[in-house]
Every structure is written in C-alpha cells, then in structure tokens.
Write a protein that binds this DNA or RNA. Structure first.
Lengths: 340, 340
DNA sequence: TTGTATGCGTTATCAT
DNA sequence: ATGATAACGCATACAA
C-alpha cells in the first residue's frame, strides 16, 4: 500500500530484519527462523503488497518456471486441447506457459524458439507437425540443439527429427485402426480424404490407411483424395466424390473437421449417412462427439500433459519416442454395409 | 558453439571490446559505434550462439515484454480467437503471451494475476466474464489495483468493475440486433436460450433480447429458457421446446454452440429449419459459418488485438469502456415466417 | 567512439 | 537464528 513497487530490501527494512532473513521466510526455506520474525516478515510483506520478482529469481537461480509452447494455430481445437493439457500440469506445478502461434512456418518456429530461449524457458514444447523435405528443418534442429545446450528442455509432439524427445500419438496406427473398423463393418471401397499436402502427419495417416487396405488385399479399391484439415476441404472432397458415382462404401477423412465437412456435403446432397455410406474421422474433437461422428480418439490432452511433466521433471533429453495410445470410437456415422 | 551458455561478458571478451560496447551493438542502440567493431561483435555473438537474457534485460530495464492472458478455457473457440488476436499483435511487436486457463473461477484469476505480476508482465488481459454477486470480485479488483500500482497495464475484455479499461463487444446490442433481425423476418414468438446462469455476459445478452422484444410490444411472447454455452445445453433446451408444442417461430441461443445444439435437436426431431422454425446464435464461430447458422459476428479477434496494442502502447489505464462493433450475419437457418 | 561503474531484485555462501 | 555480501546478465549514466 505504501510504495508502488516493493522489493525484498524494503520488506526487510520495514520488518527490521536483514534481506537474507526476509528471503528465507518468503521462500519458505528450511533454514531455521524464529516464529516471531517469520510472522513479522510475512505480515509486512503482506502489508506492502510485496510481489517477489520471478525475473530476479530466475536470473539468480538460472532457471525459470516458464514453459514455451509452439502451436500452429491456437484456434485449431487440435492445438488448444494440447495447450490445455500443458497448462493444466504446468500451472499445478507453479509454471506458466508462453504460447506462440507459428502458422506452420518453420522460420517462425525458429524465431519463436529463440525468443523462448531468451526467456530462459525451462522447456519448449513444439506441437506442430513438420513437412516433408522442409529446407529449414535442419536449422530448426540446430536451434533446438542450442536450446538444449543452454539447459532448455525440448519436446516435440509429432515425430520430427529435432534431436529431442517425441511424445506423440500413433497417427499411422490410428488411421490403420479406423480403417480396420470400417472393414469390419463390411466396407470395401473406401475413400481417404488426405490432410494438407506435404505435412508429415498427413502422410502418416495416409500410410496407415493404405497399410490396412493393403493387408486386406484391397489396395485396388483404396482411393486417396487431396483434402486438408478443415471443413471446406472435407466438403470439397466429398463433393467430388458425389459428382463421380458410384459412391464408395465409406469415407475416412484425415481429421474430424474434414470428416464433418464431408458429412455435411453428403447430407446436403440427400445421401443417407450411414445408410448409404459411412463416414469416419480422426481426433475425437468435442464436435465429433456432438455430431455423432465415428472417429479415433487421439491422446491430445495427454500428450500436452506428459510433455509438460517431462519438462518440469527435467527428464533426459534423448531423442526417444513415446507413443500414446488411441482408441476407435464407433458412433452414428458408420454402420454395417448393407448386403448386396 | 564453444560454451553452452554465453553471456554478454563472454561475447565482449571474445570480441575484444567492453561489455557496454557489446551491449550497444546487440541492442541496436543509437549510440555511435564504428562499423568495424559492430561487425566484429555481431560476428562473435553469432559464433558463440549468444542469446540475450530477456530476464536480465527485463530486470534492469524494469519492463518486460510479457503479456499475461487470462482466459476461462482456451479450448473454447471464443477464447482461442481472442488469444489469437492478442498473440498476433504481441508477437509482431516482439512481445510474448503468457496464457493461463482459469475455468471461470475468480480465485484462480486472482492467483494467476499475481503470477503475471511476479513476472512483471507489461500487461495483463482478462478475457473472461464475471458473475453477478461474485463475492471475490472486490478481491480481484484489489489485485488489479496492485498490478497497476506496479506499472502493469490491465485490460478487461468484458464489462467488469475492475478499475481498468474495458475493450469489449456490445453483448446487449448484439442480442438486440439479431432479435430485431428475427422480427424483421416476421417472427413473433421467439424463445431465447440463455447462457450460463449468473454470468454477466449471459445477462447482457438476455437483456438485449428482452429489450428488443419489449420495444416491439412482444414481451408476452418472449420466452427465456435456462441453457448454457455448449452444444448439450442448446440441445437440451430445444428438446424441452419440442416436448411442449407449439414451437415458437424462432429460437435465439446465447451463443453459436448452443444454437448449433438446438439446430441439431430440431433436425433430429424431423423439424425443418428454417422451414418451420428459424434458429440464430451469437459469436460467428467458424462452425457457424460452416453450418450456415445465422448469427451476429462479434469482434473477438479485434478485442484481443486492440487490448494487446493497448498494453504495448502503454495507454492510460483509466476505467473507460470501448465498445467494438458487431454485425448480424443472416444465413440459412433463418427465413421469413411463412404466412399464417 | 569506447570503456568503467552502478544497480535491477534475488538467492546462496559464508560468517557471526 | 540472523546478517553481510557476492554473484546472476544486462543497460545505462558517466568518464575518457
């Protein structure tokens, strides 16, 4: 109340003790302190509205409680769920997350990673997927390396060659498993709406789809269509399918949003889902649950939570990969294929 | 490459200059420096992989480039759009956002606000709505006051009595205007699905609806139903309406997600929208655009962007209110009321 | 144009 | 049980 900004020195002076004593009680040190002085320090700190400088603390202790988070776009529910997982465990441990949107641009990732490094973040969690043949990938890897030398933890949430631990969903396995589910329903001619071109995650999901179709000797009726991760892409792809009959038995989209887009196109065209055709996605967003979309639940929240825990626990930074499990969630957009 | 973590001193020594010189070139100071030394310093900094400590910088300059952001839940698109607006202008100005989810709990808001203060954030943006008769509201206001004394900018994105600038959407006006749109379509008996009970934003939107109905002498056919801001709440409210015919002419939900929930319930019940009944929401989420929901576009992104700019420009912290404009977006879930 | 010295708010080491 | 004091990494006022 008295001074606008009070430092430890002021608290100490006002309490009539030394800075060290004040520091000790305010940090909850195990150092022995008389109950009386402790009380006095706490009281004056309270009265002065003392706020310990996390900056100074981090400077002297050479370690902040900041966790950097690099997402493509926080508006995308895929990333916001991850961010939520991170923040939940971070804030519970007294850490705070620095969030940055990089819009899938590796150059921006590098630049933001540097910023996180400047802030001496305890760790940086890189959530976005990489791209095939990305010319900047090595530069990012170098930046990650420098961060690690600086004692900054780095964790990637997709399989990227960054020289840091990877905690991720099994994209290929997930795509494989929904495909298998579709097959188990009797579907044979399945169309796959791909994710954004060049993106590693897109490739993994397509690979999973194709692998499953191949294993079932169905590669000749497996069909891949260019798509994307948004409503519009799914809608467009489905429109193309509708325009060239016959329709496949089922459509699998690379993610839920595209699947809902496709679903929408089909229903607008008067096509019964799942009566005439089945539709499935990947991710299990809240939206998927709501529209009753069959999908596969990815451990997005858990990936974030585990990555944050990894940073907080300062676990080894070896380039290991942790695959978190997924689960096919059958709902109302898929049904057994009608006989004939 | 040589040392894991290099400080300015090391760069200076390696470059054969004083710390101040090194500092001057690396900060891009206007202080005159010979081209030769400048080049040398830059080169060695680069070679050493020097990363300036933003912590130390903030400590000595008494001002960080951190912006704290308090949202209810980043997974909620309402907030993620705001966060995006903030981050876009923040990162463009070299600032970084610290994000925290408070789950609509005032106590958590207070605690997180303190944390932001400990980090000497340049400013804190409080995005979530308050509640009527919130016993902790005064405490929050006090915390905001302390932050301001400390030189920390505070901006609220909803009208709350926090003693700081408010940059917000005109919730009441928005609800009023969609309602008016519905009336202009010939609808009379309109049901309003409310937001979460007690929330200020809920009240404002309901007030806007009622004000418009009153002005049209239609208060006797205006009906408010308990609801919420999610799919399920909208779905449930619509189910209740369906269970007790006759249906109203139109349904306005307190936000898009609830509106889509209602839409879904109606269509599942075989009711034609907008043939038999019109449906509208508030927010204009991407989802709304996609399903063709009539709604009113709120300046969420702009609120975030403007708030961030406010912080960066260190504008006065008076308790003024800035209302950003909204716009009714007619789409396919509303239609002129059939005669008779 | 360059260098020296001080202080930012803490923690921690070493006395007392 | 308490108190000086030296870093932490940097910017800047003041000298040269």
């Amino acid at each position: 109340m008295l001074s606008a900004v009070s430092s430890l020195v002021e608290v100490a002076r006002a309490a009539g003790v030394s800075v060290s004593t004040a520091s000790r009680v305010l940090t909850g040190s195990s150092h022995p302190i008389s109950a009386k002085t402790r009380a006095k320090v706490i009281a004056t700190a309270e009265k002065l509205g003392y706020s310990p400088s996390a900056l100074a603390r981090a400077l002297v202790s050479r370690s902040s409680r900041l966790i950097g988070v690099l997402v493509s776009d926080i508006v995308n529910p895929y990333f916001s769920v991850i961010a939520r997982g991170i923040d939940d465990v971070a804030s519970r441990a007294g850490y705070v997350t620095m969030l940055s949107n990089v819009d899938r641009r590796t150059s921006t990732e590098i630049s933001r990673l540097r910023t996180m490094r400047d802030y001496r973040a305890a760790g940086v969690i890189i959530a976005g997927s990489g791209f095939e043949a990305d010319p900047l990938a090595p530069d990012l890897a170098v930046a990650v390396g420098q961060a690690k030398e600086q004692g900054i933890q780095a964790v990637s949430l997709t399989s990227r060659d960054l020289g840091c631990p990877v905690i991720t969903a099994d994209n290929e396995g997930a795509a494989h498993d929904v495909t298998d589910h579709l097959l188990s329903l009797g579907h044979r001619r399945i169309a796959f709406i791909e994710g954004p071109p060049g993106m590693t995650t897109s490739k993994q999901r397509r690979d999973g789809f194709l692998a499953c179709m191949n294993a079932a000797n169905l590669s000749d009726v497996a069909r891949c269509l260019p798509g994307g991760f948004d409503f519009e892409a799914g809608h467009l792809a489905a429109m193309r399918l509708i325009a060239r009959p016959p329709l496949p038995d089922a459509i699998l989209a690379a993610n839920d949003e595209a699947a809902v887009g496709a679903l929408n196109a089909l229903r607008q065209a008067g096509i019964d889902v799942p009566g005439e055709i089945s539709v499935a996605g990947i991710n299990d967003l809240r939206l998927a649950r709501f529209v009753g979309l069959t999908t596969v639940s990815l451990p997005l929240y858990e990936m974030g939570a585990m990555a944050a825990q990894h940073v907080i626990d300062a676990l080894p930074g070896d380039a290991t990969t942790t695959l978190l499990s997924h689960r096919v969630i059958p709902r109302e957009t898929t049904a057994r294929r009608p006989p004939g």
